[in-house]
Design a protein around this nucleic acid. Structure first.
Lengths: 176, 176
DNA sequence: TGTTCCATGTAATAAGTTACATGATTTA
DNA sequence: TAAATCATGTAACTTATTACATGGAACA
């Protein structure tokens, strides 16, 4: 994320926007981590004055930092490490005494997924009309992020379908 | 997971099998955590002789433990906390100098997903022919885990589609 | 004039990984 | 007889969260 210079605060926004679907980080993790990575020579840092607030500490990766990134990619896809909290919850939904609580849980999940889906469709539409090269002729540094958006859309769509089926199945069970 | 008595070793197997798609844990995390939870009254423990190896320390949740689980579920779905390592890798694939390396990465990912999909189809088929109640008339403690399997199948299918599309798109870009 | 945004952090704690250590039993 | 499985753990370290602390600028 630091191929271009950014502050810790900038990075946080990046996590919340572009990476939100598959990774997150708090400022209280980011700031110490940046210092650590600077100390070990993976990042370079310089200070800039800010229009509002304290000086910005702006970081960029070093050649060594880039090499480490490359090694990480060369190891191949890191699979089997997914963590999806809400699915662990679904797994244990049978513990609820009132079956209607399980149903509300699923409905809440569905509502969130629909919101998220609509948001991603909007982002996609915005990017599309903003750039005639979208999506296949984008420059590399936009093409690969676009791939993760494309998967996000597909997965959330599948998840909504599953929510709908699940809610139907649960209703039938309650109705028995 | 400890509504029925289990040892740390049993739990590990549980993580690797039933929860593998969305959570994991190492034995070196499980053992200390069990002791901690016993100390804080969430679990009860008794020892059993084992046919092979040292005594088994078998844990069961307490009433207090169950209540804590219930509170966790009552908070509603924990969304926005997904962690999917291989997607962060895709996001940065543009860093690779040789575009063919990006392509191999995606092909490796696809191969894994296809294997995983075939495995889940097999599990599903096995459960189906083993129990005439499968999937809609299963008892609660099997119904909800089955839901996570159903989503796993849908998601992986969507992911394989995406891999195929992505590989095609990448090939076109290289061919330019 | 109060809330949000910009911008930095620290401290305490919890969660998770990697490496190390032991030893019996079962399977190939 | 070597490797895998059963079964327990500890130590050192890294990663991540929650709570706390500060203060100016922009906005409503």
């Amino acid at each position: 994320m630091l191929s271009e210079p950014q502050s810790g605060y900038d990075l946080k926004r990046n996590f919340d926007q572009a990476l939100n679907n598959f990774w997150s980080a708090e400022l209280s993790q980011i700031y110490p981590q940046l210092k650590k990575m600077e100390a070990s020579g993976l990042l370079k840092c310089h200070e800039e004055e800010s229009a509002s607030g304290p000086n910005r500490r702006v970081y960029t990766r070093s050649a060594k930092g880039r090499l480490e990134l490359l090694e990480w990619l060369a190891d191949g896809p890191q699979v089997g490490e997914e963590r999806i909290s809400y699915l662990t919850q679904v797994f244990f939904l049978n513990e609820l005494d009132d079956k209607k609580d399980g149903l509300s849980f699923m409905q809440e999940l569905r509502d969130y997924m629909v919101d998220r889906y609509e948001y991603l469709v909007e982002v996609d539409g915005f990017l599309r009309k903003d750039d005639p090269r979208y999506p296949n002729d984008l420059p590399d540094d936009e093409f690969f992020p676009q791939l993760t958006l494309a998967l996000g859309l597909k997965r959330i769509k599948a998840t909504i379908e599953w929510c709908d089926e699940t809610i139907k199945r649960m209703k039938t069970r309650i109705g028995d």
